[in-house]
Amino acid sequence: MPPSFLSRLAEVFLVFLQLGLTSFGGPVAHLGYFREAFVVRRKWLSDADYADLVALCQFLPGPASSQVGIAIGQMRAGYAGALAAWLAFTLPSVLLLLAFAYGLSALPWLADAGILHGLKIAALAVVAQAVWSMGRSLAPDPRRQIIALVSAIIVLLIPNGLVQLAVLAAAILFGLAGKPATTVSAPDEPATRGRREGLVFLVFLVLFFVLLAGLPLLANLTGNDALDIFDRFYRTGSLVFGGGHVVLPLLEGELVAPGFIDRDLFLAGYGAAQAVPGPLFSFAAYAGALLTAPPNGLAGASLALVGIYLPSFLLVLGALPFWHRMRANPRMRAALETANAAVVGLLLAALYDPVFTSAVSSPRDFALALAAFGALTLLRVPPWLLVLATAATYWAL
């Protein structure tokens, strides 16, 4: 007898909770854990279906591993399964980062002990490695390397969150107008869905764009602080191409530059996020909790977390039935390629400001950062272990 809906829902929650407690190593490692759990062990979907799902989530903006989890949960137990998968996978890292945030508030001596500065140096090493690896994979040819460099130069010369978004938009338009990428054939048997279900999915996509355009207007008209914060996290979640590390420059422009959060606390939290399992986007809960003015605390953490993840739900659930046609469109693929190259530029700019400028103030800082970068790239030290070791080393020094 097939399992009941409630048993499938409970199974989804428990499996993703286990993954959320043990999935160290970032989104690429998460996708490996997912394949082992859902393709090899439980056979919830085939290898080909899983590869197709991963391709979709890498095509869309947002955290790829979390989006794959949302999609698998929806396929297994409907919309409730999508919510259960996200909640279980995200909750452990959120609780750990909130504990860190409240620890900093309750024990301010931690900041004076050098631990925060050690975390900033760890963040510098992690972001440098991300720039290096993403540059090799997302900007492998001179055309995309030029796009990355021009994007970095523009963002450094005009340090404004809106400029970062404009650079991404320009890169997408450049890709759409340029030479199309190689066409990818759609599978012989694309998934078929009823007219009513297709309409529901279309509503998700329309809602995504309505919120993206409408939230800033509504926040400006009402002057509501909570709506303004929600809009900033929603906009970030909507435009993060290239993985979780890109959340750093976008959120820095949305939160640090306008004075919503202290820069040192922001970078220390980003470093701490490398030491916990689960998705890097959980950093949003930490940032929301430490906002300088209400809504902050648990209310700010909840608002930030829902805001940054809501675009992922709307995009994955909306794009899934249309993916076969989207991935076969050469111009869409070309736009993704140029957007990803611009993302490398944004991350390169963030590597200098705020990460390098805040972390390195002496030759000792730079030496420790070089050692941390070498440990990541040459010795393959796991990021979570590197973060703990760097913080402890700086504290000891």
Rank of each mutant, 00 (worst) to 15 (best):
P330I: 05
A139N: 04
H324K: 08
L91P: 08
V344C: 09
N224P: 00
S65F: 11
Q18D: 12
S361F: 06
L317P: 01
D264L: 07
A375K: 02
P277T: 09
V12F: 06
V276E: 01
G135H: 09
Q18M: 11
F38G: 01
R380I: 01
F230S: 08
R42I: 06
G78R: 01
E11Y: 11
R35W: 07
P330A: 02
G103L: 05
V28Q: 11
A391K: 12
L317Q: 03
I72L: 10
G345E: 02
G307A: 08
I154M: 04
I308T: 10
D188S: 15
R196G: 11
L110I: 12
V12G: 04
G175E: 06
S282W: 09
G300P: 06
R232G: 12
P159S: 05
F34V: 03
N220E: 15
L87S: 15
W109S: 13
L149E: 02
K179L: 12
H245R: 00
R196Y: 10
L60V: 03
P108G: 05
R41M: 08
P159M: 03
L305R: 02
P108F: 05
G178M: 03
G307E: 07
L91V: 09
L19V: 04
R143M: 12
L388H: 09
S358D: 05
L351E: 00
R263L: 12
T390K: 10
L255G: 07
P383H: 03
S282M: 13
H117A: 04
T393Y: 08
V184T: 15
I308Q: 08
L14W: 10
R76G: 07
D228R: 09
V256G: 07
F16R: 01
L251K: 04
A191P: 05
V256K: 06
D141K: 08
